[in-house]
């Protein structure tokens, strides 16, 4: 990467920051979103140009990329255009789920060749990327399901859910540490993924439908963090900047939303009580 590339990536980061800032006020919000979209377009074209210019990309990979991007763009466009205004929150949650999934997959793409002697800084971020990405993927799917009525909106709890959750979280943690230190290989990474996916489901099920927007915002912040971790894995600054930006902005937004609903975040996460769904 040369200086021009770095400067252009910096320009896209500025677009994201200004874009988010413009979204603070109704008068400028739409322009803010368009500015972010513009920055994104520049970042993607730039990435493709650099790949071609460096001669890294093979013809097969280029075709695969083009087909994949066209399919994804088509699906996203149709879903976003057709959705009813009232069904928008669950669609945002679905988009959030696929974003988290993509972040986790990037860690896998980096880990799969199993070129030994990955430095700890890489294995640690692979661990965190897979953990956060997988939890948000399954959690956001359940959240979208609750809002769409596919999964019952009332808080779903069952006996032994807490111990099971704790056990799974411990499993994920141990597997992650084993992977990070290089003791366990891809097997432990698979175990970590499985445990994280179930934790995401079990964390979201006990939360009532009325609290879902706050939970989706929290999961959104998590995806941002997962994207930043993916940025560490492949050493890409635009991913780190945009991911950290969304992670932090999403975190604050989650807090603001909880305050606006007169609920504490801890109460919402604990779930299963005081949700207002019980009377219904």
């Amino acid at each position: 990467m040369n200086t021009t590339t770095h400067l252009l990536y910096l320009g896209t980061a500025i677009c994201f920051v200004l874009g988010l800032h413009l979204m603070n006020s109704p008068a400028t919000a739409r322009r803010g979103n368009q500015l972010s979209a513009f920055g994104m377009a520049v970042a993607i074209v730039l990435t493709v140009v650099v790949l071609i210019d460096d001669g890294i990309i093979t013809a097969t990979a280029a075709v695969v990329l083009a087909v994949g991007a066209a399919a994804g763009a088509g699906a996203g466009l149709v879903a976003a255009r057709r959705v009813k205004m009232t069904a928008m929150p669950q669609l945002v949650s679905l988009f959030n789920a696929v974003g988290g999934g993509a972040a986790a997959l990037i860690a896998f793409a980096d880990a799969l060749p199993e070129s030994v002697d990955q430095p700890v800084s890489t294995t640690l971020t692979i661990f965190l990327d897979v953990l956060i990405g997988a939890v948000t993927f399954s959690g956001s799917l359940i959240a979208a399901g609750k809002l769409a009525g596919v999964v019952p909106g009332r808080p779903l709890t069952f006996a032994g859910a807490r111990p099971l959750n704790l056990l799974l979280a411990l499993t994920a943690l141990v597997a992650g540490i084993l992977y990070t230190t290089g003791v366990g290989g891809l097997g432990t990474l698979g175990l970590l993924t499985g445990a994280a996916l179930v934790v995401g489901v079990l964390m979201t099920l006990p939360i009532g439908g009325a609290d879902m927007p706050v939970v989706i915002s929290l999961l959104n912040a998590c995806t941002g963090t997962a994207v930043a971790m993916a940025g560490f894995v492949i050493g890409s600054t635009p991913l780190i900047i945009a991911g950290a930006l969304v992670g932090a902005a999403g975190g604050i937004l989650t807090k603001l939303m909880a305050v606006a609903m007169n609920r504490s975040l801890l109460n919402i996460i604990a779930g299963g009580f005081g949700t207002g769904d019980e009377q219904g």
Binding site: F16, G19, L20, M23, N24, S25, P26, A29, G32, N33, S36, A37, M40, A43, I44, T47, V48, L51, I56, I57, A61, A62, V64, L65, G68, A69, M88, P89, V92, F95, N96, G99, A102, A103, I106, A109, D110, P213, I216, S217, N220, T223, G224, V227, A230, G231, I234, S236, P238, L239, A242, G243, L245, V246, A249, G250, L253, L256, M257, A260
Partner: peptide, 27 residues
Amino acid sequence: LHTPLMSGANAIHGVILVGAIIVTGAA
């Protein structure tokens, strides 16, 4: 603006596409 901002931030973490292109291109 809470919900649009959440949605806008959600779109920005779509920057993960840059990462996806990089790993696929170098595969």
